[in-house]
Design a protein around this nucleic acid. Structure first.
Lengths: 343, 343
DNA sequence: CTGAAAGCGCTAACAA
DNA sequence: TTGTTAGCGCTTTCAG
């Protein structure tokens, strides 16, 4: 506070013109021509006085906040920071800022946050939290908010979204494992209420069949969240069923990390006895023990794409949803190895 | 936009009272008593119409944004997400929101971001980017902004800051190494322009002396940034000097990760030949290869403390800076081992 | 081209 | 206790 700054009025008085003239010059109204002399005077006065347009007044007047709400399920998941960086950078170029919020995978919190963001009059919402059948998303759309989904999609069509090709990615992982001689492959699946969890699960089944491998439901376990803890639980559950298996494809990297834990706790070794693949290629995936074989998706670029999609929505009165699907790529590291003989 | 919502006027008309009455009721003006009947009518009308106070108008009027700028040097460094979460949660309780910005360790970008945040009329600034002699911080203070520094401090006194006890932390690491029989201990130091880099370097020298160990300047190298790449470069540099060494204390975890790379590239093994310690105990530090022995600092709590310090500053007209120093704790994992014999 | 004035939605000082 | 009013700083319509 206290930090009172120069207003249009101040500049106007200094130069000796009407305040509306100052406004017009500073905003470079198209088709408006002042004597270049006056314009220059105004600009220098503004600079000298350190004039900055008051965002509250401006927003009140034009009824736009130039603020985009970004809702993330779990900021501590390293996949998100690069995405966020991409979003921020891109938004900043057009004078928008991102308000970041982290729901910690809690739907109730998610709803509260959404309320807060709406109360703040964000011009748009970038959501990385969407569920497959997400009422919250539907509500936002209905209320006229611009929304773009990132990494996830909802079943209802007509929403902008930036995703990756889960089927392609999982197929790569399964093919890789198959080529290494694995036949009993488990799947630690993500939450089925979330598009990525669901799609990757479907993709797993398809890919197995495509490779001519049987899918054994005893080798599949579902997680309630994309969190390490859940991955450990699910993998332990599979292991407890005592079916032969030599590999597991986890629905994301955090889950894969949980698999590492469970495998170790069971006294088995990765990759010698059990190969593991993840998904996302999150930062540090190459630093784990062992370095994780995973499906790389272009995180930073997804952020950029999301922001651009949002900007596009903001630009037009009747926005066309834009759906971008990026192609992932398997990166082979140390967590996968040839299937042990005799299994 | 379009999303026009009910205003005070709408509510007032609906109830048939003056708009100022509505305002008073909804804001629960202390000492103001309406007939409970009217108050109730107003509240239900507000609810029915979905009244939300317009933040632009409100901010314009009271000249506060209820927004705090949070400036981070590198969002992809996993130490920050927990801090940010702590900040956000705490701020949210008091109706404030955080605007997060990531400078990517670039001072120029930092300055630009600060400009943007100020232009947005943030009520305060939480900075994790401070340099030891930071003009930017001084400027902010001078301009009357409330600022709290997190994780770092500046030389000029009188700024609120939340830090950890670097000397204590480093001493723990050095003592641990010494107790394992290490005598030739290297230090991969952080940027000396940053308080943590500088203090940890000082602490390293002190701690070595306290343990009766000689510090060999050939076993010290400085990094230009707290980034893995720099850690690798610095460690490679030390290794290239071919002095005997059996351990290295890195000024933070990212640097330690870089040390891993350099050690491996040099064909040495960690921890069998060279022990490594980090600092921060960032998420996933326990998952690395090998699991990193490091100094744990309470990240989430630091975020909470920072936000509370900020809230305290915001509360009073003439704020007393608050300086909190949290106590870190060594956590021993797999990257440190007994010193090899014969060195 | 430039000035005047209204008004975005709100709070607070003042009157009644 | 309640109503009236000014005004936060800005954009924009309407006159001039």
């Amino acid at each position: 506070m206290a930090r009172g700054r120069a207003t249009l009025k101040d500049v106007a008085e200094r130069v000796g013109v009407h305040l509306s003239t100052v406004s017009r010059v500073l905003n470079a109204k198209p088709g408006y021509v002042v004597s270049e002399e006056v314009a220059e005077k105004i600009r220098t006065a503004a600079r000298e006085l350190g004039y900055k347009t008051n965002p509250f007044a401006y927003s009140l007047r034009v009824n736009r906040s130039f603020t985009i709400g970004v809702l993330i399920p779990d900021l501590t998941n390293p996949v998100f920071p690069p995405i966020i960086r991409g979003i921020e950078r891109t938004l900043a170029k057009k004078g928008y800022i991102a308000i970041l919020a982290d729901s910690d995978n809690d739907p109730a919190e998610e709803e509260r946050i959404l309320e807060r963001l709406k109360a703040r009059q964000t011009d748009g919402l970038i959501l990385a939290t969407a569920h497959r059948a997400d009422e919250l998303v539907a509500d936002c759309l209905e209320e006229g908010y611009r929304v773009v989904l990132i990494n996830r999609s909802v079943e209802a069509a007509g929403v902008s979204s930036i995703t990756n090709d889960d089927h392609f990615g999982i197929a790569q992982a399964v093919r890789h494992l198959a080529s290494l001689g694995h036949r009993q492959i488990a799947h630690v699946a993500g939450p089925q209420a979330i598009s990525t969890g669901y799609q990757r699960y479907l993709a797993f089944r398809e890919a197995m069949q495509a490779e001519g491998l049987a899918v054994d439901d005893n080798l599949i376990a579902f997680c309630d969240a994309f969190a390490e803890k859940e991955g450990r639980r699910a993998m332990a559950q599979i292991l407890a069923r005592s079916r032969p298996l030599s590999a597991v494809v986890a629905a994301n990297d955090l889950l894969a990390l949980g698999c590492y834990d469970a495998i170790e706790a069971a006294g088995r070794r990765c990759p010698e006895e059990i190969s593991v693949t993840g998904y996302n290629d999150m930062p540090f995936a190459d630093k784990f023990k062992p370095p994780l074989t995973t499906v790389h998706i272009p995180l930073f670029e997804m952020g950029i794409e999301a922001a651009e999609a949002m900007l596009a929505l903001l630009d037009t009165e009747n926005p066309e949803p834009r759906q971008v699907r990026l192609r992932p790529e398997l990166v082979v590291r140390g967590s996968t190895a040839r299937a042990p003989a005799g299994i």
